[in-house]
Measured scan of single mutants.
Amino acid sequence: MSIQHFRVALIPFFAAFCLPVFAHPETLVKVKDAEDQLGARVGYIELDLNSGKILESFRPEERFPMMSTFKVLLCGAVLSRVDAGQEQLGRRIHYSQNDLVEYSPVTEKHLTDGMTVRELCSAAITMSDNTAANLLLTTIGGPKELTAFLHNMGDHVTRLDRWEPELNEAIPNDERDTTMPAAMATTLRKLLTGELLTLASRQQLIDWMEADKVAGPLLRSALPAGWFIADKSGAGERGSRGIIAALGPDGKPSRIVVIYTTGSQATMDERNRQIAEIGASLIKHW
């Protein structure tokens, strides 16, 4: 067993022997301040990774656009098919120029040779490549099948209805392509620590998230040296922004954090800054 596999296998073990965790309302004060600064709703939840206990939450059962955070769930569904012998990570998928959609920095470079399922998941999570996500959605049967996968996990809230990039439209009061912070946090925890996926697939999923290259201005910008984070960000229309993450000190994750916002007129930089400040408060009061 590799060191990384050992780390993920012992996530519940280490967490069980940690000192009790206590909620700190100071972080919620910052979440509410972010709402004021952005002029928009902000949803927040913080779960203990081992027990699933909610440590703090704000608007945990209000719907927010998922945006690209759905790509972690998508690759979880792909990995479940791999575990069941219905898919192979090494299978190569070929596609054409007509398949390319807006923001496809990886797939646009491989029109000639195609990409493997493993490479597509890596591109979808680490670079948020939209064509990679659409190609992977095709392998599982489309958005409705991802929703069905989530329902089978016990998540009857999260739903995907459309493809990239239309799913980022974020129309107010439109339930399409949305989740709730509580539902997303619980589902992410199941994917990373539950028995739904094999140990190898859980490790692969967290490795992809740990290698995320496009979430630097968010929670990662607030992390002290030595902290662990595996995350996936999302951005959408109407001032929408979000991030889902597993993080913790001492090089291992111990909490799940989900943050979503929508309806702001603020710039992307300002949305990023507010999420980073929430992260800084979380870490300060850990």
Rank of each mutant, 00 (worst) to 15 (best):
L100C: 08
V258D: 07
S264C: 01
K190G: 15
A183D: 06
G142E: 02
E164D: 10
R92H: 01
P172C: 14
Q203I: 04
T178S: 12
E270V: 09
S80C: 08
T267M: 06
F58L: 00
P25T: 06
K144N: 11
L146C: 14
R189S: 13
D174H: 03
Q86W: 12
G234A: 05
L282T: 11
K232N: 15
D212A: 12
A182N: 07
T138F: 09
L219T: 07
V101Q: 04
P253C: 03
E145F: 11
T198Q: 08
T178C: 04
S201D: 05
S51V: 01
S281C: 08
M67W: 09
L150N: 15
A40Q: 02
R202N: 11
P25L: 10
D36N: 11
L47S: 08
M115D: 13
D83G: 03
D155G: 07
V82G: 00
K30R: 15
A185W: 04
R162Y: 12
R118H: 08
G114Q: 02
Q265I: 11
A230N: 13
P65V: 03
M66C: 00
L89S: 09
D269R: 03
E102S: 05
T126P: 01
S221D: 15
A148S: 12
D48A: 09
L49Y: 09
Q88P: 10
G239K: 09
L47V: 13
T69Q: 13
L89A: 13
K109Q: 02
E87F: 11
G90P: 06
S240I: 01
M209S: 06
V258L: 08
K284I: 03
I229V: 02
M115R: 08
P60M: 11
R271T: 06
D231G: 09
D207F: 08
R159Q: 03
T261A: 13
G263E: 14
L79N: 15
A225K: 14
R91L: 06
E108W: 00
W163F: 10
L111D: 11
E102D: 02
E87S: 13
D174M: 06
T147F: 07
R241Y: 09
V257N: 01
L191M: 13
L120G: 03
G234W: 00
G194E: 10
D161L: 09
E166H: 10
E119D: 01
N152S: 10
D113R: 00
D129R: 00
A266K: 01
M268H: 03
P165Y: 06
G236Y: 08
Q274F: 10
G114R: 01
Y260C: 05
L38I: 00
R59E: 04
M153Y: 11
A200W: 09
F228K: 00
K109W: 15
E26G: 15
R255D: 13
F228S: 05
L47P: 01
Y44H: 02
K190Y: 15
H110T: 00
E195H: 02
H94A: 09
Q97E: 15
K109V: 11
E102L: 04
W208A: 09
G242Q: 11
D48S: 15
Q274T: 12
A235I: 03
L55F: 08
S221V: 10
F149Q: 06
G85Q: 15
D212N: 09
N173C: 05
L191H: 10
V106Q: 15
L191V: 07
Q37N: 09
E61M: 04
R202G: 08
D155M: 08
A235R: 03
L120H: 00
I256S: 03
E277L: 11
L100P: 02
K53E: 07
T158W: 10
D36P: 03
I125Q: 00
G242D: 12
L150M: 15
G248M: 07
P25F: 15
K53C: 15
L223D: 01
R162H: 03
W286F: 04
M153N: 09
V214C: 14
E210Q: 10
S240Q: 02
R59S: 08
Y95S: 01
D129L: 00
T27F: 02
D269W: 07
L28V: 15
D269S: 05
Y260D: 02
E26P: 15
V31C: 11
D212E: 06
E26N: 15
E62A: 00
E26H: 14
L49W: 09
K30E: 10
G39V: 14
M66Y: 00
S281N: 11
T139Y: 06
I244C: 14
D250E: 09
S80N: 11
S264T: 14
T261V: 11
R41Q: 14
L74G: 04
Q274R: 13
I256E: 09
T27M: 02
K71T: 01
D155S: 05
M209N: 13
T262M: 15
A170Q: 07
T186Q: 11
E164S: 01
D212P: 14
S254P: 06
T27I: 13
Y44K: 00
A211I: 08
M209E: 11
G154S: 13
L137E: 06
H156W: 07
L100E: 09
K213N: 14
E102K: 00
L197P: 08
R41Y: 10
R91V: 02
L137Q: 14
V31S: 05
R238L: 07
L223P: 11
D99S: 11
H156C: 03
K190W: 14
L219K: 12
A133V: 06
